[in-house]
């Protein structure tokens, strides 16, 4: 069996790509999957911080590419899940230190011994983004219910379509049902209406996410967190399981929107 390569991207920065990668990887590891995370944000790495592995970094992805170490040496084992690894980005280099074919080669080497390879893309649509999607079998686009974030997500979806990367899946992050109810925030329906791509999960706004990121302990570990539950559900859907969408009771009309849009290609 060979691994599935999933790239998490967004266009706009700060919408929760890194958080999504850390949480989905952890949730997949909790389900017993062998997972490798790759931080594609060369020069601005932080996946290691969010996963609580910062102080274990010896080698990084640029060391692998430039032949200073073996791939295995740059793979940092997670503290809790022995089948989960992180390949960190280099902090002292820039995006040009990696090329799309380097990413394809590294993923090819990783595929035989893992179930999921999750790549954290940098913000933007330049070199770093192209590196991150080069090897992807599937792309997850993360957005927030904000006009600017949705506009950038739309741009990214357009590029993915042009590059024939298959149908991207959408994660709508940081939805605040109370604000949607008061017409202060775009609803899930508004976002899906514009982007017209398949939804894989809605993550509600939850302060535990920030607490978890700062502690280096992704929120999926917290059984009580709503956001954690949402990420666990997305991880199950990525494994091909049917999981009903969480019910944000306050939102009228959301169900219809989801059912209508998830049924469409």
């Amino acid at each position: 069996m060979t691994a599935q390569v999933i790239t998490v991207t967004s266009g706009k920065g700060g919408v929760g790509k890194t958080t999504a990668v850390a949480n989905l990887a952890t949730a997949l590891a909790m389900d017993g999957k062998r997972v490798v995370c790759i931080d594609g944000d060369i020069g601005l790495r932080n996946l290691d911080v969010v996963m609580g592995l910062e102080n274990r970094i010896v080698y990084d992805i640029v060391d692998v590419i430039e032949g200073r170490c073996k791939l295995k040496q740059a793979m940092i084992r997670d503290k809790h899940y022995p089948e989960m690894y992180l390949i960190p980005a280099a902090q002292t280099r820039d995006k040009n230190a990696v090329s799309p074919s380097d990413m394809v080669r590294i993923c090819k080497d990783l595929r035989p011994d893992s179930d999921f390879i999750i790549i954290d893309s940098p913000a933007g649509i330049e070199r770093g983004f192209r590196n991150a999607i080069a090897a992807a079998d599937r792309v997850l686009v993360v957005t927030n219910p904000e006009v600017s974030a949705v506009r950038d997500a739309d741009r990214v979806v357009g590029i993915l379509e042009a590059e024939e990367k298959g149908n991207p899946l959408l994660i709508l992050n940081r939805l605040n049902p109370a604000m949607v109810k008061n017409n202060e925030m775009l609803s899930a329906e508004d976002v899906l209406d514009l982007l017209g791509i398949q939804l894989v999960g809605i993550v509600p706004e939850d302060e535990n996410v920030i607490i978890g990121s700062n502690r280096g302990a992704p929120v999926v570990n917290d059984a009580k967190s709503r956001a954690g539950q949402a990420f666990r559900n997305i991880a199950k859907r990525l494994q091909g399981q049917e999981v009903p969408f969480m019910d944000f009771a306050q939102q009228g009309g959301l169900w219809g929107a989801i059912q209508r849009l998830t049924g469409r290609k």
Partner: peptide, 23 residues
């Protein structure tokens, strides 16, 4: 659908079946 960032230019008429998104 013509998405944000795409620019379609043509020296004749243009017929689109799909949306033209903001941007």
């Amino acid at each position: 659908t013509i998405r944000s960032g795409a620019r379609i230019e043509y020296p004749g008429h243009i017929l689109i079946v799909g949306d033209v998104n903001p941007g």
